[in-house]
Design a protein around this nucleic acid. Structure first.
Lengths: 208, 208
DNA sequence: TAGATTGTTAATCGATTAACAATC
DNA sequence: TAGATTGTTAATCGATTAACAATC
């Protein structure tokens, strides 16, 4: 889209989306970049710059219409699009993801879990079946899967991600404590839980 | 520490730590910033800059000793320090965190879960007791708690975080889909799962 | 129309990268 | 000692902020 929007901008979009949702729920109809900046602890300048990468959603002298800006950003983020997700690893985290019902309203569908543990296979979590991991290749090739969530042990992560890539997956939601090693057209969104805890630890140990 | 190290640098430390662990496991003894940069897809310059914020860990003509650099970074991150964590919300995610055993080796101890559901209270998960949420204030005031992990519904998140702050908590691991609103000396590390999914969604919708 | 606030260009700031003298 | 590679300063780049003309 346009001439490449920076990662920093894109990463702020979901945050705008959240704040606008809040404003709608509070019955706020219009908001200026100035007001929004106070709420979000950003600069009004940044907000206007960010939004203008995607179009002129505001109106001089008025500001932004909350509802329509919410819709616009939702469109940009593709919340109306359906996205199919498989989860590798039916452990505690994998099951928790599938059980959480907050993703579906934004178009995310969990299609299947996969696990090495034969005893789990055939069972289901929140209506989502667990399949043996050795079926994942066939499964991906015969279904339209957009995203693979990895909640498997670290030592299998790279191997599995490569297998998934070869089967056609390009979008990865990586919960393993390792960086995947994939070709450049793979998009990996890392959720490194230990990393974030370690950052907290750093802050605790270096508190003034 | 020193004259304020930027967030960008700090957020890279856990990543260095992970790669060095890998190198140790592979039996690598020394590494140059050049080699490490190829591995981590960063510039050698950045690596040297980053590390030098904390001290001269390398040696000209030799590079860095993997084991001792690993230890140094571990120290900076405080992996030897014990950190006590409570988890608010004994739902799927809260339980998954407590059940995951990968955090304890870096000094993180889960002390207690808290939940509104009376039926859960008294039970325990992975040996960690679940207490009623209305006891959390007393609990925090009578124990040395460093970090509060929030895995509660969004609509209670701000209220609870303020209560915890008033009880003395300064470090928050926030899994709720909302930004906390706390005084400046509170350190919040957000894990916005939906945000990261939405970023993936954006990338899918705007591919190529 | 006058006032408000955007869209957008220009200035600033900080972070990343390059370069090289210091040194093991 | 010569070669390699760091530590560190200087240059570049990109992102954030400020400013203001355009316009509702």
């Amino acid at each position: 889209m346009k001439n490449q929007i920076s990662k920093a901008v894109i990463s702020r979009l979901p945050r705008y989306y959240r704040y606008l949702r809040e404003l709608i729920d509070q019955g706020v109809e219009r908001i200026s970049s100035e007001e929004l900046s106070r709420l979000m602890k950003a600069t009004a300048s940044q907000i206007r710059q960010d939004l203008n990468h995607f179009g002129g959603f505001g109106q001089q002298g008025y500001g932004y219409n909350v509802k329509s800006l919410y819709k616009e950003i939702g469109n940009i983020l593709g919340v109306e699009q359906a996205h199919n997700i498989i989860v590798l690893g039916a452990g505690n985290l994998g099951r928790a993801l599938v059980k959480y019902n907050g993703f579906s309203q934004h178009g995310f569908n969990f299609c299947s879990l996969f696990d090495v543990d034969e005893a789990l296979c055939g069972k289901s979590v929140n209506g989502i079946g667990i399949r043996p991991i050795n079926e994942v290749d066939d499964y991906v090739r015969s279904h339209e899967i957009d995203i693979a969530a990895l909640t498997i042990p670290m030592d299998k992560a790279r191997e599995m991600s490569t297998l998934l890539y070869d089967a056609g997956i390009r979008y990865f939601w990586n919960f393993t404590n390792i960086d995947l090693q994939l070709p450049d057209d793979a998009i990996v969104k890392d959720v490194h839980l230990l990393d974030s805890l370690l950052e907290l630890s750093y802050r605790i140990c270096n508190a003034k």
